[in-house]
Amino acid sequence: MQIMGVFAKIGTFTIGGGYAMIPVIEREMKDRGWIDEEEIEDVVVLAQSAPGLLAVNMAIFAGYKIRGLKGSLAATFGAVLPSFAIILLIAIAFTSFKDNVFIQKFFQGLRPVAIALILVPAVNMARKGCRKWWQWLLMLLTLVLVAFLKVSAIWVIVCVLIVSVAVASAAEGRKKKC
């Protein structure tokens, strides 16, 4: 219950999601003595490489370290519930406010900004993630496939998963033979 409360607090007061939550979760966990510094680093690293949202993964992992499956469930519910409730209220209200002239103007200004803001993490990720030539090629290929050739994003991810693991396994095999 207490775990749920803490994660609900974290969920409610961090706007911007995932990366904004990490330092807050770290501080809360450490202050309460639930997990130590080293464990938190493990949690962050694993949460980043597992599928899904960073914030949710952090909650699942940290909750588990504190109190097993129950802790995990409580933390996740805590992290998700506030945003679920808030968004639902907005969704229900927005359908009736939508045609208000001020709301329309406000959103007219908001829309290009919202699109610019999803481009920022893409550029950051490209700068950090593209070190070798094949990574640049892969990024461009994904962009063209999804935006221009209308290939499903899920299929692109599945192909990337399969091919990368196959290539790495082959490279490992060769190393063992030598």
Binding site: S49, A126, G129, L161, V163, A168, A171
Partner: peptide, 27 residues
């Protein structure tokens, strides 16, 4: 986490993800 197959997978997923998000902004 330290398996070379896993690290290769992650190093391929990052650029692909950047491409995906870029595509979303374009679309």
């Amino acid at each position: 986490h330290n398996d070379p197959r896993f690290t290769t997978m992650m190093s391929a997923l990052k650029p692909a993800t950047a491409g995906l998000i870029g595509a979303a902004a374009l679309i």
